[in-house]
């Protein structure tokens, strides 16, 4: 569904990604793990158009999206719940969720039943129901994370990128976020997940890629990575 081939990207004069390739098959969950500064978020940003890749190729459902503006990539069906959540603080929870469906309102994506999807998102994240008309800026970090995921799903996307959905959350909320990811996987949603909780990410994922200094060090099925001694030592040791 989403393929990344030999992607190079960075900021100003620094290149962060030195040619990485990742394949996210339809209906599967792929996780990208690695230490801080390895280039996980840069990968997500280069795929969704927040930054322009220097070279390489990104295709979504067979169509090339490399280097396009982020709004075009979103309209093509790629939803990105970015690092740091980035909800719209001065808009209500409901309006934040609705904006996730913006291309459907403007019919640059198939419209479908937006209100029904809004209700479904609310039902999936019950914490948001009572906050529906509250400004997103007043939510707790955990609630903002739920909101960011709900908003991304409103696109009816082909692929969802989730960047560090557990960042800064209390342990109980981290578990809740992973339960939601598991539930989305059950619904057949294709996901690329960046996580620092490598063990939990590999538990939910089908495939994993380990990113080290801007290059893919190891990749394979989640089970294979979980049993790989080098991966265990570097990423699974103290994290769970």
């Amino acid at each position: 569904m989403l393929t990344i081939e030999n992607l190079h990207a960075g900021y100003d004069k620094t290149e962060v990604l030195h040619g990485i390739s990742i394949d996210v098959p339809k209906g599967k969950v792929v996780t990208l793990i690695g230490s801080n500064g390895a280039g996980k978020t840069t990968t997500m940003r280069a795929v969704s158009g927040m930054i322009r890749p220097r070279s390489g190729r990104v295709t979504l459902g067979g169509k090339e999206i490399t280097g396009q503006d982020s709004f075009r990539i979103a309209r093509a069906g790629l939803a990105h719940s970015p690092e740091g959540r980035r909800v719209f603080p001065t808009l209500s929870v409901a309006d934040n969720i609705r904006l996730g469906a913006f291309p459907r309102y403007t019919r640059s994506r198939k419209r479908g039943d937006i209100d029904a999807d809004l209700d479904k998102a609310m039902e999936m994240f019950p914490r948001l129901i009572e906050r529906r008309d509250q400004l997103a800026g007043t939510l707790s970090g955990g609630e903002q994370q739920m909101l960011a995921i709900a908003r991304a799903l409103m696109l009816n996307p082909e692929v969802v990128l989730l960047d560090e959905p557990s960042m800064g959350l209390a342990p109980i909320l981290v578990e809740e976020v992973f339960n939601i990811i598991r539930r989305l996987k059950g619904e057949g949603i294709t996901m690329l997940l960046v996580e620092q909780f490598a063990a939990a990410a590999l538990d939910v994922a089908d495939y994993g890629y380990v990113l080290e200094n801007g290059r893919i060090a190891v990749h394979g099925s989640a089970d294979k990575l979980k049993n790989d001694p080098a991966v265990r030592a570097a990423y699974l040791g103290g994290s769970h």
């Binding site: 927040m50 309209r75 939803a79 909800v87 001065t90 808009l91 904006l99 913006f102």
Partner: peptide
């Protein structure tokens, strides 16, 4: 209107608005 909300979203966070499919 959803277009007006897109304007407010762009004011809040341009990058995130782009991710929503809004031509900022």
């Amino acid at each position: 209107s959803i277009y007006g909300k897109a304007v407010v979203a762009t004011s809040n966070d341009r990058d995130a608005a782009g991710l929503m499919g809004i031509n900022t």
